[in-house]
Design a protein around this nucleic acid. Sequence first.
DNA 1: ATGAGGACCTGCTCGC
DNA 2: TGCGAGCAGGTCCTCA
Length: 327
Amino acid sequence: MPELPEVETVRAGIEKHVVGRTVRAAEVLNPRAVRRDLAGPDGFAAAMAGRTFLRAERRGKYLWFALDDGSEALLAHLGMSGQLLVGDPDRPLSPHVRARFTFTDGGPDLRFTDQRTFGHLMLVPFASVTLPERAAADADPSACLVGPSIARLTGHAERQAGAARRSATLPPSAYSRLVPEPIRHIAPDPLEDAFDPEDFAARLARKKTQVKRALLDQSLISGIGNIYADEALWRAKLHWARPTDTLERGEVSRLLDAVRDVLTEALKAGGTSFDALYVNVNGESGYFDRSLNAYGREGEPCGRCATPIRRDSFMNRSSYSCPRCQK
DNA sequence: ATGAGGACCTGCTCGC
DNA sequence: TGCGAGCAGGTCCTCA
């Protein structure tokens, strides 16, 4: 499943193939792929035509392409099974292609493929406006000029004009710190500069929930899914059901180190698994089978103490842990 | 306000 | 051989 390392692999892989290119036509083959875009499939497709890809960016499991002057973005979430593939525009259309973008240069096209259709695409404005306004918005979310309710009611043309007007006040260097409006609530991920360990620890301490649930809470820390949550908890020797408000400071530090390590190592491995024109986010490829210590290893010996790994049911999914190392 | 759980979705595997 | 149940899980929505 695409978690942060897979999404970053896709972002880095796709960036060099699309940046600087202009969309000739967008085609939505399954309306569910753009279900969160209120312009609808036709509106989305029409609004994407003529857009130039400027940058490829990411936060947590979301990735986006800043378009044209950087005032709007094509936002993508890969869900459970999403892929972004670049290739010969004449190759056969697989049945799971949900959206397709061709380019004015006639070169390789971009396809959003998604078997389980949990992923989606949206054309959206950036959330923040000028830097002083950004500071105000951070202090008080309701102060954001482009709040969710406004964005939902506003059409593409108006959003476009508004975003362009606002972005005119921004120095180019500020763009990289902006995130698309629909993901304002997504916390920084542990691999970006904006991530603040102190803030994370403080917010974690205020929560009254289980530590694994907290790791999966994208508004607290982003980029972690079920697999890397289990792996990080195994490394940190923490039980998944441990109440967050009982964690000691040292344990939180250990957990954050484990999270960073597991994401970084997976990113290194994931970065080797695709070639030039085919960007693969298939969960089975590369590191998956080799370097997992807990996830999916029910009954197999723990790498530290040889106690069989246990599987528990949690949130309608599985949690894998060592009953001895992770009390 | 916050936390917990269900819905969404499709392909694969397993057991009868 | 065929079929249905179970499973996989990220995010949003609803309910308590």
